[in-house]
Computed example of a mutant assay.
Amino acid sequence: MGHLRRGGALAVVLGLLLAATPAAAEPTTRYRNPISADFADTFADPVVVRGQDGLWYAYGTTDPLREGEKTFHRVPTARSADLVDWTYVGDAFGPDQRPPYAAPDAGFWAPDVRYLDGRWVMYVTVTNTTVSPAGDDFAIGAATAPSPTGPWTFAPEPVVAPRPGGGGGWLWTIDPSQFTDVDGRKYLYYGSYYGGISVTELSADGLRAVGEPTVVAVDNKFEGSYVLRHDGWYYLFASTANCCAGPATGYSVHVGRAKSPRGPFVDRDGLPLVGSRAGGTPVLTQNGNRWIGTGHNGFLTDLSGQDWIVYHAIDRADPYLDEPFGINERPMLIDRLDWVDGWPTVNAGAGPSDGARPAPVTTARLDERFSSGRLTGWRAPTGDWRVTGGGSGGARPLP
């Protein structure tokens, strides 16, 4: 902390507060990827939400969590107080729990969890339904719960049913992502390489698709969508290339923006995300360090107002679970999302981090805040105290 040129009383107050703070209460100020290492070797398609209890909850796709475990967790769930240290708290669904339309061998992929109208709603890919014996008839299901850890109850009907495609197959109805607009209208984005990404409006309870869907991103290129509203624009993030090619993966995140949740979305060069010459401005891609296959993202905002992206990636030196053989090892990572000239980028364009980084601001405990008259402040991730009151507006370092 720099020297104080004014406000001697403030210096005394700060000194007393810091002296009274036990060392064990020091906030987490640094993190290192992957943040799922405490509880999982792989935690693909992650999404993170903040509960009413102030804790953070992460959900991943159905897979084993650890090397050699051989147990497929049906939407594993983890909890954290600081987005750095995580604890596995169980699976969203039991081994015999499935919606009425799901086949016995159905798995649940790519969960998206939201707090809607007083309850938690999980949208999830149901990998096999009773529509077709072929087993490629994906659907989007929904489950509701009173808390982020459940208990989860499936809605009896799919939000988006399996969709017939050309040649007798079924379009890839996967990777759901819900969005609520400023006017309260609810939308769901879904889809993948076979069929592209579509958006549909949802019923008031968020459990049924209504109206006609709109294709917002071309097939054979995009999946894993997520929409954010920022400064009056709607940003459609989507992943491209093969998520699961081990050390050969080129998975990455691209973006387009629009003035409506239904698009049309265009990239920074004005190229649309639909059409034969589909665009997409890169947001997150490999940069030469250990992390490749960076994609299928979610977002969160910490208590300082900083945006963060959560995603999975592959360690080029350890790309697979050795047992069960062939499953891509995709742990959960987090990095800062910056906005530069109206466009998002990760770590100011540096990409995925490998090494200690300033952690998100996730707590407002006494050891991180002070108050003296009209002056208030908080301790930044760097460890510096910052003034947020006193009539100047905004956070600034102490003088």
Rank of each mutant, 00 (worst) to 15 (best):
G195M: 06
G196A: 09
I197Q: 10
S198D: 15
V199Y: 00
V199H: 01
T200I: 14
E201V: 02
L202E: 09
L202I: 07
L202D: 07
S203Q: 08
A204F: 03
D205Q: 05
D205W: 01
D205F: 03
G206D: 10
L207E: 07
R208Y: 07
A209N: 06
V210P: 00
G211Y: 05
G211A: 13
E212A: 15
E212C: 01
T214E: 05
T214Y: 06
T214L: 00
V215E: 14
V216I: 12
A217Y: 01
D219Y: 12
K221C: 10
F222K: 02
E223K: 11
E223P: 04
G224C: 13
S225I: 00
Y226H: 14
Y226C: 11
Y226E: 12
V227I: 11
H230K: 14
G232R: 10
Y234W: 13
Y234G: 06
Y235A: 07
Y235D: 04
L236A: 02
L236Q: 03
F237E: 10
F237M: 12
F237C: 11
A238R: 05
C243H: 09
C243S: 15
C244N: 14
G246M: 11
P247F: 02
T249N: 10
T249F: 06
T249S: 15
G250M: 08
G250A: 13
G250C: 01
G250T: 12
Y251P: 07
Y251R: 02
S252K: 14
V253Y: 02
V253R: 02
V253N: 04
V253L: 03
H254D: 10
H254E: 14
H254G: 00
V255N: 02
V255E: 02
V255M: 07
G256D: 05
R257P: 02
A258T: 02
K259D: 12
K259S: 14
S260Y: 00
S260W: 01
S260P: 01
S260R: 03
G263C: 05
